Amino acid sequence: MITSTACTKAFGKPDIDFEIKYMVVWKVPEAIRVKIPVLPQKIYCHKLMVAPLEKAFKNIIDRELTSEVISWNGCFCIRRKRGQSTLSIHSWGLAVDINEKENAFGAKPTMSAALVKCFTDAGFEWGGKWSKPDGMHFQLSKIYSMKNISLFRVVLFAMLVGMLGACKSSLAPTVTSQTNDTIIKVQTLRDTIIKTKQDSSFYKALLECQNGKVVINRPISVTPGEILKIPGVELQDNYLTVKCKMESQEVPVQLKENHTQRIKTVLKIKTQYVPRELTWWQTTQINMGRVFIGLVLLILIITFLRLLKIV
């Protein structure tokens, strides 16, 4: 059974700061209001009440007990308990009242056990079993410190992130570049023909007869060629004509050309680290570590549940 002291310790006094931090306006789903029409469209309650209330109402619908919900008599109300000096659990929005006229405070409850079970199965405590019965009253059977819940979530998240980080490979694939220069010498032979130009020489002289012989008296004209010298002589009509001629020639020539070609090759090498196959002892160690981590997590969860200050 939760008390006002426990609520104050977990959430503080029910003042404006409390309402800003913990209270919410829960819009009752249309599917629930259609089946239980006495419910309001919106319920102003503690945020811890939303899920249990929705579960209780769905239990009522699923178990076909909607006709037994005759009236809705509120949730949040800052007031003292009837006949006492301590605050009611309604002051923190952690309790609801239904069927008030049929189950008045201090009177014998008339609410069916089936309807009560719809709420208790959802995490509520029924006031109809108290020494001074309050048959209309249902309040959460346990409350949790929101601070401890948040701390537990942060620690659990940090542990999960740490475990995932530990599984990450520390060696990422690397890519390296290797540049190779290849020099290729190419020799090309080319056959061609060189044509030389025509060349000639000319010689002309006056011949005389001396002692019964024709002799050359003096040269009349001498024309040498660029290359050729004066060759043979022709004697006719007492004139000596000397001609020298060279026909054009085709001279075969073989030309040799040397070329140097440079080829640059860039080779990219990707190094992929492949893990070695584990031995049976390494596998055993890993499995033992997993069991150990699981036990540590279980111990931490149990410890935090105890620190949640379940009331």
Rank of each mutant, 00 (worst) to 15 (best):
N148D: 06
S150V: 05
L151P: 00
L151W: 01
V154G: 03
V155Q: 07
V155A: 11
L156S: 07
F157K: 06
M159L: 15
V161Q: 05
L164V: 15
L164F: 14
L164Y: 10
K168S: 07
S170H: 06
A172H: 04
P173T: 02
P173Y: 01
T174S: 05
V175P: 00
T176V: 06
S177M: 11
Q178S: 15
Q178M: 12
T179E: 11
T179D: 11
N180Y: 10
N180I: 13
D181A: 11
K185D: 15
V186E: 15
Q187W: 08
Q187G: 08
T188S: 14
R190F: 03
R190L: 03
R190A: 04
I193E: 15
I194D: 14
K195C: 15
K197Y: 11
Q198G: 09
Q198P: 03
D199C: 08
D199F: 04
S200T: 14
S201H: 02
F202Y: 12
Y203D: 00
K204L: 07
K204D: 05
L206P: 02
L207V: 11
E208T: 12
C209A: 12
N211W: 10
N211D: 15
G212P: 01
V214S: 08
V214K: 07
V214G: 04
V215C: 09
I216A: 14
I216P: 03
I216E: 12
P219R: 00
S221P: 00
V222S: 09
T223C: 06
E226Q: 10
E226S: 13
I227V: 15
I227H: 09
K229C: 04
P231W: 01
E234F: 08
N238H: 04
N238F: 04
L240I: 02
L240K: 00
T241S: 07
T241W: 01
K245Y: 12
E247W: 14
E247I: 14
E247K: 15
E247G: 15
S248A: 15
V253P: 01
K256V: 09
K256W: 03
H259T: 07
T260H: 03
Q261D: 07
R262S: 05
T265G: 03
V266E: 09
L267K: 11
L267M: 11
K268L: 11
K268Q: 11
I269P: 00
I269W: 02
R276K: 12
E277T: 11
E277H: 03
T279V: 11
W281A: 09
T283G: 05
Q285P: 00
N287M: 10
M288A: 14
M288V: 05
